[in-house]
């Protein structure tokens, strides 16, 4: 059964120079139990996609499209209904750099209690908090501590625990491992793996395709606001179709094998009035005349690719 589906989502930010179309006509769907990794360079719209699903795009608006969670549109429902029944309860998010936004003057426990109060939680606070702290692999003594007494990895776990407090089905994690040491990164990855086993679906937003391979069944590659390729993880890794996906995979430094690195020359186009046609045109090694027209989505084995090579 389809768990969540995003259809033709468009989100933009108004600026003095025009609208920045950060998410431009993005579509994908996940089945029950599946997780997705969203990859792309900085400013490709991947965080805005996450914020759009949470309906909290700061100073931006969702222009069109639809988001359906378990058969019900969550974009068409009223703001208050979404806030009451969906946000944090069904879908929650771990924001980028959230571990630095813990309040320094309150203990961890006080910060948990505040969240529960805000949502008028009716059960036993103490029990709920100790459960959630255990589930992210921390011991009870962190509750009495202040954020400055905790390491980066511990703070990241606390922030993840907060996103899990109301037992959501879908958690969006925006760069949860960036700025952490490799050993701590690996622990957070194992934590995400465990949460998946407990039945949660995750949307992992990162620029690092290596980390996505650890948690996601499906992968969406974004470029300049568009999702240019979507498919199953084995297909994306073993048989990437879009020249951008291919280049992105080749740019990852490997521990074993060839030392030759490839990188993508140039920069993505501006998202204010982006050029007609394929947005990767300027940087694409396979660009041809036809690419000056917008490429439609062509079906692949497990998803789609927006590239004229596969017409």
């Amino acid at each position: 059964m389809t768990f969540i589906s995003i259809e033709n989502l468009k989100t933009g930010y108004e600026t003095r120079n025009g609208t920045v179309q950060a998410v431009d006509d993005v579509s994908f769907a996940l089945e029950n139990g599946e997780s997705i990794g969203i990859a792309g360079e900085s400013a490709c719209g991947k965080s805005t996609l996450g914020l759009s699903i949470m309906r909290i795009v700061p100073d931006g608006n969702i222009a069109s499209g639809d988001i359906t969670l378990e058969g019900k549109s969550i974009l068409k429902m009223s703001k208050s209904e979404f806030a009451k029944n969906v946000r944090w309860k069904d879908i929650s998010m771990v924001f980028q750099g959230a571990m630095n936004s813990l309040d320094p003057v309150f203990t961890v426990e006080e910060q948990f209690i505040e969240v529960l109060k805000q949502h008028r939680y009716s059960g036993d606070y103490k029990q709920k908090i100790s459960e959630i702290v255990n589930s992210v692999g921390l011991t009870q003594d962190v509750l009495k501590k202040y954020p400055h007494e905790l390491s980066g990895g511990m703070k990241q776990r606390i922030v993840i625990a907060m996103a899990l407090l109301l037992k959501p089905k879908f958690v969006i994690a925006d760069e949860p491992t960036t700025a952490l040491d490799v050993l701590v990164q690996a622990q957070i990855i194992n934590l995400l793996k465990k949460l998946k086993k407990d039945g949660m679906s995750i949307m992992l937003i990162t620029h690092d395709l290596a980390i996505i391979s650890e948690v996601a069944e499906k992968i969406g590659i974004m470029y300049a606001g568009k999702m240019i390729e979507f498919g199953s993880a084995p297909e994306i890794y073993k048989n990437p179709k879009h020249p951008y996906t291919q280049a992105l995979l080749k740019s990852i430094p490997r521990l074993r094998g060839d030392k030759v690195t490839n990188y993508i020359r140039g920069t993505p186009p501006s998202l204010i009035q982006p050029p007609q046609g394929c947005r990767f045109y300027d940087r694409c090694p396979e660009a041809m005349e036809k690419c000056k027209k917008d490429p439609p989505k062509f079906k692949t084995g497990s998803g789609y690719v927006s590239c004229w090579l596969y017409e």
């Binding site: 490799v182 990164q185 690996a186 793996k193 980390i211 650890e214 993880a233 890794y237």
Partner: peptide, 22 residues
């Protein structure tokens, strides 16, 4: 342990737990 912690982009990673010898 540092080497164990590094992920490589391999789809097989999905099915196994990341083992770090530490």
């Amino acid at each position: 342990a540092l080497l164990d912690a590094i992920s490589e982009p391999e789809p097989d990673n999905l099915l196994k737990e990341k083992k770090i010898r530490i």
